[in-house]
Structures are given as structure tokens and as C-alpha cells.
């Protein structure tokens, strides 16, 4: 099953570069066993995963294998991401790229650990994102 992927689930699954345990690891294992992919995401999200896990080379392999599909980029989605950033003060670049992805692929679940922020985001049609959080 395809899904839109934020950074948190991959960080929880792969582990942090500083070796500190991630409280969402067990949840992430269940999520990646449930969702077969491929996973739609953005370069900004994958960048976050890269610096948090130290697995930059693996991320590129995942893109090459089409496990990760980069579905937004600054050049093509500049206007949409700008709109999201302007509308939500607490939104960062990665989050805005995920919101825009959800506008492009409205039927796909959005997998994230960021409950606090993603509960507040709305798409252009004012609908909430179909988010999947840890329990």
C-alpha cells in the first residue's frame, strides 16, 4: 500500500545517529510491515532523515530503487509550498512539502510521528490530512 512519508517514521525505524533510543521504534516497525510502499516524500524530508540517522547513502539507494518517490520539489511546487508556509506559522519546509504532497495525492495516508503539527495542517480545500500517528 502506497503512502506519504514524513521524516519521523524512518528516523524511528532506522535509529538516530546519536544512538539514543526512539520511543516510536516499535510502532515504526509495525507501520513498515503494514505499508508496502512505495513511499511518496520530498528531498527535504529525506534530508532530515539523512542527518538524523546518518544513512544518507541508503536514502539515495532507496530513491534509485523507487522505494522513495520524490513527489515535490522547490522548483515546481514553490507556489504551493509558499502558500502552506505562509498560512501556518509553525510549519517548516519539510512539513509544507508533505502537505503539498497530500494535496497532490489526497487518498494516500500521511505517516508521521509529528502529531502536534500535523493535526493542525489543512489542505487547500480545507480538508484535514489523512494522518497515521503512533498510538
Amino acid at each position: 500500500m502506497k503512502a506519504i512519508l514524513d521524516a519521523g517514521p524512518l528516523i524511528a525505524l532506522w535509529g538516530r545517529a546519536d544512538q539514543r533510543p526512539d520511543k516510536h521504534h516499535e510502532w515504526a516497525v509495525k507501520i513498515f510491515a503494514h505499508y508496502s510502499g512505495p513511499f511518496f516524500t520530498s528531498e527535504t524530508v529525506l534530508g532530515e532523515v539523512g542527518f538524523m540517522t546518518g544513512c544518507a547513502a541508503d536514502i539515495l539507494k532507496g530513491v534509485a530503487k523507487r522505494h522513495f518517490i520524490v513527489g515535490t520539489d522547490f522548483e515546481h511546487d514553490f507556489a504551493a509550498m509558499s502558500r502552506v508556509l505562509a498560512h501556518f506559522d509553525h510549519c517548516d519546509l519539510a512539513d509544507s512539502s508533505v502537505v503539498v504532497l497530500s494535496e497532490k495525492l489526497p487518498n494516500l495516508d500521511v505517516i508521521t510521528t509529528d502529531r502536534r503539527h500535523f493535526l493542525t495542517y489543512r489542505r487547500m480545500d480545507r480538508s484535514a490530512l489523512p494522518v497515521v500517528f503512533p498510538d
Binding site: 516497525v29 513498515f32 522505494h67
Partner: peptide
Amino acid sequence: ECAGDWCLGLA
């Protein structure tokens, strides 16, 4: 390999 299994394998 599906993407989910690949991610699990890397873990």
C-alpha cells in the same frame, strides 16, 4: 523487494 520490507531490512 517492496519498499516496506527494504526499510525494515535496513533497520
